[in-house]
Amino acid sequence: MTRRAPGTGQWPKPTVPSTSARAMYRLHRVLEPNRAYARLAGWLESHPRAYRAFTRAEEEVKGRTFNCQMCGQCALPATGYACPMSCPKQLRNGPCGGVSPDGMCEVYPDERCVWVVAYERAEQEGHDSDLTMLQRPIDHRQWGRSSWVNYWQGRDERLWTSDDGPASSPRVCADGDPV
């Protein structure tokens, strides 16, 4: 299901984004959810062909820029706009302990650890405390779905949190028996 970096045929590959973090933080303001976006998202979801085209466009843009893997639950705003799903272990809460002294990935020794990149980008823009937020485990049913649509529909609200409260996601309980 996971898209592999072209040519490697292997694990997701850490990637330095092709745009600056500053530009992305600015762009984010334009993309913040509002009623118009929510209407657009709702319309896309009820028109499968349009949804597919929209999702392909998203994949194209984010794939080129971040090596986006299309997990459908975008963490970029909280990770200095470096995609944690391009980490071979797809860690969403920070780097593993295998980062080499010069900041390289343990699986791809020629690539910089995407979390080292994320930290530098976030810190530069004064967003380093974003990385201390807890990223909850993702919903694997969302792979290949549009994260922009999910975001505008308000489905990403509980993806990360600064509170350390209990796991509370009864909505994923399939048989309607949340407790």
């Binding site: 694990w11 071979p88 272990k89 797809q90 860690l91 969403r92 809460n93 920070g94 807890l134 990223q135 909850r136 485990p137 694997h140 350390d164 209990p166 796991a167 509370s168 996601s169 009864p170 909505r171 994923v172 309980c173 028996d177 949340p178 407790v179």
Partner: peptide, 29 residues
């Protein structure tokens, strides 16, 4: 196949929720 369904931080949080709140990730008690 590497699984990595979640990472260590999320697993610590999951375990704490299981113990202190008696809840699985699904919400079941």
């Amino acid at each position: 196949k590497p699984v990595f369904d979640m990472d260590s931080v999320a697993l610590v949080w999951t375990a704490r929720s299981m113990r202190d709140h008696g809840r699985l990730l699904s919400g079941r008690s």
